[in-house]
């Protein structure tokens, strides 16, 4: 009995590890694709956040632990490959706050993936603004949050609805 359950546990873990790898790869590819299409009109820092698709789907389909591993993996790998230390710090602050908020919002069950995604996008921007305020020691940067909140709401809506479709239609 115990042997059986242990075996089952191992199987699940192997599967999870493979899935986690696939999700990290997918998130990195989406980030890269996004970087190829610059949002011309936009203010610095505004983007769609395609990689967040992966985060939200992971949150719904794989659970919190795997979502954290996937986000960390993506940030560290892309940071080391294409960015620098500052990029990693900004990304970690954004992703950390965003995942925390999304988990809490998801738990309330008030919103669908769209609402969760909007909250995630806005808190992601907020996390990065907080790092900017701390490193630049200038509170006035907070004003920029208004622009980023609007951008986050729009991007979060698009990503959220897309995630909702994916969550509904794939089985993992």
């Amino acid at each position: 009995m115990s042997d059986n359950s242990k075996n089952k546990q191992t199987k699940r873990t192997n599967r999870d590890i493979a899935l986690t790898g696939v999700f990290i790869a997918l998130a990195m590819i989406l980030s890269y694709l996004e970087s190829l299409v610059p949002v011309g009109f936009a203010v610095p820092g505004i983007k769609l956040g395609l990689a967040n698709l992966v985060t939200i789907v992971a949150l719904y389909k794989l659970g919190l632990k795997d979502t954290i591993i996937i986000s960390l993996g993506r940030i560290l790998l892309s940071g080391v490959l294409f960015g620098n230390m500052m990029v990693i710090i900004y990304s970690l602050a954004g992703a950390g706050l965003s995942i925390l908020v999304m988990v809490l919002v998801k738990k309330t069950k008030i919103f669908s993936a769209m609402g969760v995604s909007i909250c995630g996008a806005i808190s992601h921007n907020l996390g990065q603004i907080i790092v900017a305020v701390i490193t630049l020691e200038n509170m006035n940067i907070m004003y920029y949050m208004i622009v980023l909140a609007i951008a986050g709401a729009v991007a979060g809506t698009i990503i959220g609805v897309l995630s909702g479709m994916i969550i509904k239609n794939i089985r993992i």
Partner: peptide
């Protein structure tokens, strides 16, 4: 997410409208 759950709930739309309105006022 359960299959019968809607893709976009009313609360999602309310959230979006509230956020955009607040930002606009700001």
């Amino acid at each position: 997410m359960a299959d019968n759950e809607k893709l976009i709930k009313k609360s999602d739309v309310i959230l979006l409208v509230v956020v955009l309105t607040m930002a606009l006022f700001a």
